[in-house]
Every structure is written in structure tokens, then in C-alpha cells.
Write a protein that binds this DNA or RNA. Structure first.
Length: 579
DNA sequence: CTAGGGTTAG
């Protein structure tokens, strides 16, 4: 009587509170035999605060009356389903230590977790246990294993496993297919795809996505039209492809044409607009979303952070915290937020976040630490930045570039060079951002000669200087008094100079009181920017310094009246913009 | 239970 009531209760258990009540009931009546079943049932529901549920299941597991591999398997599967991969693997290890014989659920879930967190060592040791526990013929376990190798890029082993499998499902085929697609072997993928006996949507999607990512939109479109059945993922793959090759308009056409959109669709479009620099369109889409999830918020946040709108980013972050619809920030959220703080030079804001970081359940990783290096360096705490840099598990290109830049703006050119040399010794290939940091270091130290050498060495790494690099060089040359050289550099630029470049020249002209070039620079600045007040006042102070009082006065007057000002003796300069 | 479409740092 009691047990039937218990069974019905357990089947309805969908919250931590209910689980606790039922558990109490079980303990009072001495029905510990039901504990594993309770775990099984309470994890079947898709609860909102699954983390609390996971925690409770975990603690129950350790207080079981007798160890039970079924219960362990349930929790491991739950963890891997919810993305708690590290936890799933460590649970599996604990289970193994207790000498419990794993279920196929436990093994396949643990393998999936290893694949996701790139834990090859763990994966291979579980592979060994697959033989010991006799799962050689279990399709689920075999497919999970094959997927592990496929995800690790070891297509040889994956293929071998596939060929030796006595029984294959369409999942096994698809897993290997996506491996071929991901490693970029599209010809082989296409051949393999043609062989799949019962192709399903997922097989087609993998192929479409492969061509789309490779930039072959023609082939992607052809396949997309041939597909017997399309789902959201098919459309989303096409949108991703269009965005990848820069045709945001085609992506939008796809977006409008599809029967309905989901979170992935919205987020992909938002990220697409972000890459395109179209913040307004991104925000418009974001506002139209009914159910904003964590990932779409992250995409919008990243859009703000990457398009120099740090204030808007922080505003959105605060909204996320306010909304309390379970939009819990994660690591991705924070990396954008840190970037925003860095752009504002707002270390205080980070301190506030840091004090709440445990509430968010976030642990600092290399990715976040790298964002922090930049933040601390920009706020002048170079020692703290160094400390973080040394604490990194793996120092990659981005981390080195951040640190080099940090040394650059904190007046430590020799440290920047040392970092750069160590980086090269570690076979990390520098990119444009690395050189931004290096050139900044030379600029800050006023090392013209070395800076120029560095600038010229960029081509040795196959790099073409961007407009920002030219800006730094103009600043470096100009500050040191090489105004003509700076000007020559500008007119020989392969791209159209922007206000950053001309502004740097203007500033240098102010520093060295060069009227002639100052007028040229201003002429270009006002052509490129509507609000020219700052430029005029710079020019005006040059006039004042060299004693051209009339011109200085004219400048001031023009600024007050906001009229268009004709700069004296400059009619010839307009011919120089288009060499 | 195992496969597909997506967000992050310089």
C-alpha cells in the first residue's frame, strides 16, 4: 500500500522540495531500497534549477544505503545531459573506484563528457574498461566511443571502430560523417554521406553545414534544396554559412523565409549583425525575441563589447541580473563584461562582479584570466596582470598579445620585447593584434628606429599592417618630430586614412607647432567627421603659438558660430587624399 | 543513453 503511493509520488517528483519530502518518507519507513528509483525519477524532469537538483542527487548518491550502479548511472547521465561534463567524468571515476560495474548509460554518458571537455586520457582509459565490462557489442557505447575519436580529430581510429562495429545505427554513421566534415575532408565526407543507408535530417544537415562553413554556398544551397525534409537546424546552418561569407543580406532573407525561428536562429543573426558592425539591427532583433535565453543575451552583450559600446554592454548585463528569469551569467557573459569594463577603464565594476562570482557559480579559466590581464593592464595594475599571466595554464597567442599590449601602455618596452621573443621561441605565430601591442610599446617609449623596424618586419610574418598600425606609426614618428616622414607614410598608405591617422598627425603638429601640415591634417579630419570642434581648437592653438593671431581668432570665431571654415592656403591639399 | 544548427578573451 505504502509502496504504490510512493511510486506515484516519485513519478510526479519535479522539484527539489518534493524530492526531499519523498526521501524523508523513504527513510522514515525504512524503504531504502527505493532510493535509486527516486534518483531515477527526480532526474527525469526538466526542472529549471537543475543545478540544485544535480547537487541533491549527488548528495543522495553518497548516502545510499548500499552502492548501486543503476543510481550512479542515472546521475552521470543527468550531469552529461545538462552540460556538467567535468562533474560527470569525476563521478564516473568515483564509481569506478567503488568497484561498481558501470551500466551502459554510465559509460556512454562518461564518454560523451570526455569528448566534450577534450579529455582524451579519460576517454582512452574508459575505452579500456569497455572491453573489461563486455560492452563490445553495445551500439550506444560503441557509438559514443567512435564519436569520441571523431571529435578528437582521430579519424583513423574512428573509422577503424566504425568498420569493426557489428551493429551500426544511423547515429554511428552521422557521428563519423560530422568528424569528416569538421576536419575539413569534404570530399571524403561527401562519399561517406552517399553511402549512408538511411540518411536522416541530421545526415543532410551535417553535409549542408560542412559546405556552408567552407564557404561553398552554391553546393550548400543545392543540397538544401534536395533535402527530403528540413528542420530548424538546416535553416540555421544556411544562415551561418551566409554570415560566414559576409552576405548578411542573404542571411536575413533566409531568416525571413523560414517557417519559424528558434533561439539559435536569433542568436546567429544577432552575432551576424555584430560581425557586420550593425549594432542597431542586432538590438532590434534582440528586442523582438519573446524568450531571451542566456546565449542570445551573451551574443548581444558581445555585440556591444566588440563594437565599442561598453556602457550599453554593462547596462544589458545589469538587466540580465534583474530579469531573474534564470538568466544566470556564465563565463561567456563575463568575458564580454570584462571587455566592457576594460574599455571604460572601470576596475571597480569588476571588483563588484568578483565579489559575486561564487554566487554565479563561475570559476576563473584561462579565457577569463586573459580578459582580466587586459583590464588590469589598462587600469595600470601591471603587476596584477603579470600575476594572472603567470597563473595561466596555457599561454596562447591571445594571452601573449594582451600581456605585450599591457607592457606597452605601462611603459615597459623591454618586457614587451621579452614576451614577444619568448612567444616566438614557443612557436606561437604573432598576428596583427600582437604587433599592435609591440608598436604601442615602442611608441610609448619613443623608440622610433626600433618601432620602424618592427613595423617593417610585419611582412616577414605574412601580415599586412592595418589602419591602426599606421595610426601608431604616425603617432610615433610625429611625436619624435619626424613630421614629414609621418606625412609621407600617410599618403603612401594602401587604404584610405581615417581620423585616427590624421588626428595623430595633427597632434604631432601641435606638439612641434607645424602650421603647414597641421592645416592639411585638419582639412582631412573635418572631411571625415562631423564634429570637428576638437580639431579646430588644436589648429587654433598652433596658430596662437606661432603668432598667427588673426588665423587663431578666425578659428575660434568659426567654432562658436559653427560655420564651415575655410582654412587659409589649403586648396591644394584636397588633391592628396586620392594619390 | 550515442549524432546535427550557436555565444566568449587580446
Amino acid at each position: 500500500m505504502v509502496t504504490t503511493k510512493l511510486m506515484t509520488l516519485m513519478k510526479k517528483c519535479s522539484s527539489v522540495k518534493q524530492a526531499k519530502q519523498i526521501h524523508a518518507h523513504i527513510l522514515i519507513n525504512g524503504l531504502t531500497f527505493f532510493q535509486p528509483l527516486l534518483i531515477h525519477h527526480m532526474l527525469l524532469w526538466d526542472v529549471i534549477n537543475y543545478r540544485t537538483m544535480a547537487q541533491y542527487a549527488y548528495s543522495m548518491l553518497h548516502h545510499l544505503h548500499s552502492p548501486d550502479s543503476f543510481a550512479w548511472g542515472c546521475v552521470i547521465r543527468f550531469f552529461s545531459q545538462k552540460g556538467l561534463f567535468t562533474e560527470a567524468v569525476s563521478l564516473y571515476v568515483q564509481m569506478h573506484r567503488m568497484r561498481l560495474c558501470p551500466t551502459s548509460h554510465a559509460i556512454s554518458s562518461a564518454l560523451k563528457s570526455c569528448a566534450r571537455i577534450q579529455d582524451m586520457l579519460g576517454g582512452v582509459s574508459i575505452h579500456g574498461q569497455v572491453h573489461v565490462f563486455g560492452f563490445n557489442t553495445c551500439v550506444y557505447v560503441q557509438t559514443a566511443l567512435l564519436d569520441l575519436y571523431s571529435k578528437m580529430g582521430d579519424m583513423g581510429t574512428a573509422r577503424k571502430m566504425f568498420d569493426e562495429m557489428p551493429e551500426k545505427s544511423v547515429v554511428s554513421w552521422n557521428s563519423l560523417l560530422s568528424g569528416y566534415v569538421k576536419t575539413g575532408i569534404l570530399d571524403e565526407a561527401q562519399d561517406f554521406f552517399d553511402e549512408i543507408p538511411g540518411k536522416d535530417v541530421i545526415s543532410w544537415n551535417a553535409m549542408v553545414s560542412g559546405y556552408a562553413k567552407a564557404g561553398n554556398m552554391d553546393q550548400a544551397c543545392t543540397l538544401f534544396q534536395q533535402m527530403p525534409e528540413r528542420n530548424l537546424a538546416s535553416w540555421n546552418a544556411m544562415i551561418t554559412g551566409f554570415i560566414e561569407c559576409g552576405s548578411i543580406a542573404s542571411a536575413r532573407k533566409c531568416f525571413d523565409a523560414m517557417p519559424r525561428q528558434n533561439c539559435v536562429t536569433w542568436m546567429t543573426m544577432i552575432a551576424g549583425y555584430s560581425k557586420d558592425g550593425d549594432v542597431d539591427s542586432a538590438r532590434r532583433l534582440f528586442n523582438q525575441m519573446d524568450h531571451k535565453d542566456l546565449l542570445s543575451c551573451n551574443a548581444m552583450l558581445a555585440c556591444y563589447a566588440q563594437n565599442s559600446k561598453p556602457k550599453e554592454a554593462l547596462e544589458l548585463f545589469n538587466d540580465m541580473l534583474k530579469l531573474d528569469i534564470n538568466i544566470h551569467p556564465d563565463k561567456v557573459t563575463l568575458s564580454s563584461v570584462i571587455s566592457a569594463c576594460s574599455q571604460l577603464g572601470d576596475l571597480e565594476h569588476w571588483f563588484w562582479i568578483e565579489s559575486h562570482i561564487n554566487d554565479f557559480g563561475i570559476v576563473l579559466d584561462d579565457h577569463l584570466a586573459t580578459a582580466l590581464i587586459d583590464l588590469y593592464a589598462k587600469c595600470g595594475s601591471i603587476d596584477k596582470a603579470y600575476e594572472l599571466f603567470h597563473s595561466l595554464r596555457k599561454k596562447d597567442l591571445v594571452a601573449h598579445s594582451a600581456m605585450i599590449y599591457g607592457c606597452g601602455i605601462n611603459g615597459r618596452p623591454s618586457d614587451a620585447i621579452k614576451l614577444f621573443e619568448r612567444m616566438l621561441a614557443d612557436c606561437i605565430v604573432p598576428n596583427l593584434v600582437t604587433f599592435t601591442g609591440l608598436l604601442t610599446a615602442y611608441n610609448h617609449a619613443g623608440l622610433v628606429e626600433k618601432g620602424y623596424q618592427c613595423f617593417n618586419s610585419m611582412k616577414d610574418y605574412g601580415l599586412v599592417p592595418s589602419i591602426d598600425h599606421y595610426g601608431i606609426m604616425v603617432d610615433l614618428l610625429g611625436r619624435a618630430g619626424y613630421l614629414d616622414e609621418a606625412y609621407k607614410l600617410i599618403i603612401n598608405m594602401p587604404m584610405q586614412p581615417n581620423t585616427g591617422v590624421w588626428g595623430a598627425l595633427l597632434l604631432a603638429c601641435r606638439l612641434h607647432n607645424n602650421v603647414e601640415l597641421g592645416e592639411v591634417a585638419v582639412q582631412h579630419c573635418i572631411k571625415l567627421e562631423s564634429d570637428a570642434t576638437g580639431y579646430y581648437s588644436l589648429l587654433s592653438s598652433i596658430y596662437a603659438t606661432v603668432g598667427k593671431w588673426d588665423d587663431a581668432k578666425k578659428m575660434r570665431k568659426g567654432m562658436e558660430g559653427k560655420e564651415i571654415i575655410k582654412i587659409p592656403g589649403c586648396s591644394w591639399t584636397s588633391n592628396l587624399t586620392t594619390p
